[in-house]
Design a protein around this nucleic acid. Structure first.
Lengths: 208, 208
DNA sequence: GTGATTCGCTACGACCCGTAGCGTAACGGG
DNA sequence: CCCGTTACGCTACGGGTCGTAGCGAATCAC
């Protein structure tokens, strides 16, 4: 996340305070939650974290990198369970993702980063590295799991990139644009739709 | 979009220049395109439009309202054709939407507005009024059209809100987050997926 | 004309930016 | 144990943007 010298490079001198890292990232999340991306200022984060402004600039090059670090940990909590069938696994992941997206700091952070990244190729790359790609593994692993269980028809129909965009995109659109909670019925309807899409596009592929 | 007094309220006095409106909205789109949402400043827009900064503040209460007005017209160009079957209609709309989302000013404007709206309920409402709801009609009309053609099975499976979120969300995710163009093959694969999802979830509904 | 409103222009205090300089604090090595 | 090195807190700075106010000139309805 940050360029903290855990490597052999910065061994001499006073080490950076890990406590400061935690305080800063916590303060960032707190301010994101109750003021939002646009109103988030480095100075405010420093005050709230009880840290000098220069300490922040010493670790993160920009507001974007700071927020990226602040939300990266949360996203890594997503887990792929093995519920016994593909639909149940999918439903679990959708619920976990929806729970993350229900948090205000996550909402404003993700959209703010995406907004800035539309005109900043380097940031867009960082967003993919830190946020998108690590979560795409869930689809890859879910497909492998389904295949191992013998659900070959559905598994073979999974185009990882397309399925990922459908899941992530739809949940984001529903919760942040349509601004409705991911209620139980909604999740079930959506999961059923994706399942039907997979089975329906499986034609012409090797059967199990 | 703006509170321009086209009504009977502001009949006396010097009328607002429509030319200024056009110049301002054009300048807004141009600056959005080559600097992005975050770097868009009211002062820059005024200079580029050849207009005083106060003229801008007289018409739009905030940067968000200005951008909202600047992109509203573009979104209203979306048209629902009647290609003969639901899948073809859907494909056409997806292509039109993808073409809009390929424009840089549209990318940064939409994401910037959504980002701000996550912590601003009033703005979120405005976004829904101006952007989301007017486009949702495409799904409603598409369903009615399909039903009139006798495609009752698929039509009855259409949950307007869910289908809208799937279409809009997936295209946005693919183009702005995954940052890949909506190539021909991609559109066909996605449309096939949605079609399969509709037919698959049609079970238990009245047949045609 | 007369009153009302908009226009361009200039100026203002407030805020945030990112950086620099300073003295002090905390580490490792000779 | 001191010394080099780096991090830390603090203060201060020039530069930019914000949103508003005040002014004279311009342009409409009546």
């Amino acid at each position: 996340m940050s360029e903290n010298g855990t490597g052999a490079a910065s061994r001499k001198g006073r080490p950076r305070s890990p406590a400061a890292d935690d305080a800063i990232l916590d303060a960032t999340r707190a301010l994101l939650a109750d003021r939002g991306w646009a109103a988030l200022t480095i100075g405010d984060v420093a005050v709230r974290a009880g840290v000098a402004k220069t300490t922040l600039y010493r670790r993160w090059a920009s507001k974007q990198e700071l927020v990226l670090a602040a939300v990266a940990d949360m996203l890594d909590t997503l887990r792929l369970p093995d519920c016994g069938d593909l639909a149940a696994d999918l439903e679990s992941v959708v619920r976990q993702f929806a729970a993350l997206l229900a948090r205000p700091e996550m909402q404003t952070a993700l959209m703010g980063l995406v907004a800035d990244s539309t005109r900043d190729p380097e940031l867009r790359l960082r967003v993919r590295e830190v946020i998108v790609d690590p979560q795409k593994r869930l689809v890859v692993e879910g497909r492998a799991q389904a295949r191992a269980r013998g659900e070959t028809t559905a598994a073979n129909a999974i185009d990882v990139d397309l399925v990922f965009d459908i899941i992530a995109g739809t949940v984001v659109q529903h919760m942040l644009v349509s601004a409705e909670p991911a209620a139980d019925v909604w999740v079930k309807k959506f999961v059923a739709f994706v399942g039907a899409g997979l089975m329906g596009t499986a034609e012409g592929l090797p059967e199990d």
